[in-house]
Structure formats: C-alpha cells, structure tokens
Nucleic acid binder design. Sequence first.
DNA 1: CAGTGGTCTAGACCACACA
DNA 2: GTGTGGTCTAGACCACTGC
Lengths: 233, 233
Amino acid sequence: MSEANKTGFRDVKEEILERLRDRTWGPGDLLPREIALAEEFGCARTTVNRALRELSDEGLLERKRKAGTRVRMSPLRSARFEIPLIRDEIEASGSVYRYRLVSQQIMQAPDWLCARLDLGDNAQVAHVRCMHFSGSAPYQFEDRWINCGIVPEIGSTTFEQESPNEWLVREVPFSNAEISFFAAAADTAMSEFLQVQNGEAIFASERATWREGNPVTLARMYFQRGHRMTTYY
Amino acid sequence: MSEANKTGFRDVKEEILERLRDRTWGPGDLLPREIALAEEFGCARTTVNRALRELSDEGLLERKRKAGTRVRMSPLRSARFEIPLIRDEIEASGSVYRYRLVSQQIMQAPDWLCARLDLGDNAQVAHVRCMHFSGSAPYQFEDRWINCGIVPEIGSTTFEQESPNEWLVREVPFSNAEISFFAAAADTAMSEFLQVQNGEAIFASERATWREGNPVTLARMYFQRGHRMTTYY
DNA sequence: CAGTGGTCTAGACCACACA
DNA sequence: GTGTGGTCTAGACCACTGC
C-alpha cells in the first residue's frame, strides 16, 4: 500500500527502461520471457507484452518468436517529427499567418516531374508557387505541382485566397506520402521570396503524395537557413 | 468462409482507413463508439481499441473520453525517421565504412556550449572532430563535445580507432535526446573535410543527449548538400 | 517439434470530460 | 451524473523460427 497501487504497462516500461539505463540488461542481452516478467511484476502477460512491444517499436528492443527479447546492439532509435499545417505551426508560435499566391498555371508536366512521380507522357499538371509569412517575415516558399489527371477540379480552382495545401487536405481524400529533408542553394526565385542572397544555404523539405497508387502532388518547401526541424525522444 | 476467417486489428484498421479515404467519415466527423464498431466488425472491443489507438497515434484520429473519436480536421501526420549508427547506414548501402579522427582535446567548455547544454561554469569537455567515409567519398563530418563531468573515462580514451558515437553507445548508458535538422553554410573546416566550396550549402543534424537530466554530449553532423533524410507513411 | 512472442476474447473497473 | 475511452485480467489459440 505504500508503493503504487497497481502495475500498469507504464510502470513496467519505466522499470525496464531503468534496467537498460543501469545496464542490468546490456546491449545484446536476452530478457526473461514475458510470463516470467509478468510474474515478477505481478501483472498479466498482456501488460508486459504492451510494454515490451512499445519499447520494441521505439527501437530499443528486438523481439523474435522463439528467440525471445533482446536489447538492441546499437539502439537504432527513431525520431518522430510532427508535420502540421503551416498555418497551425505559425499560429502556434503566436504569430499571425499570412499567405500570398505567387503564380499558378496549368501546363504539360516537365520531363523530370514525369520521371519523379511516374506520370504518363502527356500529363497535365498545375504548377503553383506561393509564399507563407510569419507576421511580416518570409517563412516558407512553396513550389508545388498537382496532377490534373487525379485532381481535375484544379482547373477551376484559384489559390489566391487559400493555400494549395489546405485546399488539398480538405478536398482530396487522404493519401500516402514520402517526405524528405535536405539542403539546397538559393536560386533566383528563392532568394527573392525568402529575402536571402543568391546561392545561400536553404533548408528544404519535399513531400510527394499518392492516392491509391496514383501520384497526386509534389511539393518542395524552402525555408531560410537556420530553420530547424526538431524532435525529442 | 469465403471472406477472411477472422477479424484482426489490422483488418479493422484497414477498413477504417478505407472509410477515411472514401469520406464515409470526413474531417471533423464523429465515429461510432468502440462497442458499436466491435459489434459491426464482429470482434472484441479490445481489438477495435487497438486499431483506433494506432490510428490516433499516427495522427489521423483524435480521441477523448466521453467526447468520442473524431477524424482530425487537418491530418496532423507524423513522420518517423530511423536514426541508425552511421557505420550501419553506410554498410547497409553496400559501401565500405571508413573512419578518421581529425582532432581530440580536453578543454574548458566555451560559453556558447555552457549555455546550450546548461553546463556549470568551469566544466571540462572533450572536443572531438572526425570524418566518416563511404568508400573513399567523404560522407559526414562530425563535430562533437562530451561532458567530462558525466563521462570522466573520456580523459583516458582515444578515438583514433573508434568513433565517439560507437564508444558512447557502448560505454554510456542510454539517455534522452533532442535531434534537429537544418541547413548551414560550409565553413573552412567543413569545406576542407567534405570537399565542397567554402560557403556552400550543407545539410546538418544536431543531437544533444542527456543522462538523468545531466548533459552528456552535443554532436553536430554535416553532410554534403543533397544528402537526404527520407521517410514514408 | 517445442518454445516464444502475437493476438483475440469477454468481462471488468477506472478516469476523465462534458452536461 | 453519465458516457466514452483507457487499461487490466486470465485464459486461449495461433504463427513463426530455431533446434
């Protein structure tokens, strides 16, 4: 009665973490079976299972049937980055979000885009460029291509008032995506819109999304150097 | 008997995903209660619970006691990036991993580092710089600071044969971390070691780790422009 | 073939948040 | 107060995989 009243999966998780920290179980070591741990902690196997499963998802343990649960040799940890709407991101920081359309046109997809998204030869796409501001400061320059074959309504939509991302989230059902981060050198457009010098380092993120195997959109988003994607674990 | 034999949480998850895709349940909508879904799918509530919990973890649904389960307005999705040991990363790509120590010295922590990691005034740190190669190509330049107060063995360790990261993983128990990605301009050292021009865009990642609230190490890792952190969801 | 994790079940109680 | 999700339990069967 002086200790915690019940043993939840969080307690189990915390205790196991503690034993990983103090090296009771070091890299490569085999942990006791779930049943044994359940007995030790005085809880159901299901509870231990959930704790171990989550630790395994987080990259700290490695589990195999018959072979048991082991501490990972090199703690292959995974970092999670939240990808919010840019408006939410800016407003959450306490600033005012502003948006401006730079250009919008329908055109034949350029070759590199066809290759990148596996588009057909004569695919029509909408090319949209726009700026996102945090207060009066330029925050992100967005360069986006949208597949007219999958999203025909694009032809009669203007992005003067609303950003293509918000429009897509609302109008186009949910899709799969690939995200990547990299660095680039500012070209003429970027340096103008982000107010940096030509050739200066730029932080960039690229997102490609598909709907049921069909390419929907490719977006490149550019930030001033120093912009950070951060996470904790 | 012509359909699937059993309804697992994966089946439930997939069916719910399908209904999100076809807008049976659109942004902001309220889903049926777990019990109702369990009846509909012919499974236990626990099974539905797990499916919904995972979808909620992935950022697609929002759940509140009493209020029920709703489709998120803007699908705040989260991307997971795996953070492997650099040796594993390079060897997984089929290349040979090579390592070279650039410099190693014990010194008084500079002010900016004290501020960054919340170190005491007279803290001693080890400053280690090293290169990681993929085959013969420069892959990553690492600039790392290690807190001697927490890791005193550092004084008698040389990183000529082994990279500080591998040493830390092996010797220092498990810790919390903060990771971020950003872009930088190559300074003299980076341009020399990564074989790029001075001022050129560089992709950078910074990792700070703590052990029980005490700062252990701060590492900045620089890659040639074009290096990508990629993930799918 | 046998041992371990993976999952499902039916039922129970709890904790929170809204009215 | 009361309804919903959050979690635990005890037991069961299945599926992989190492021997």
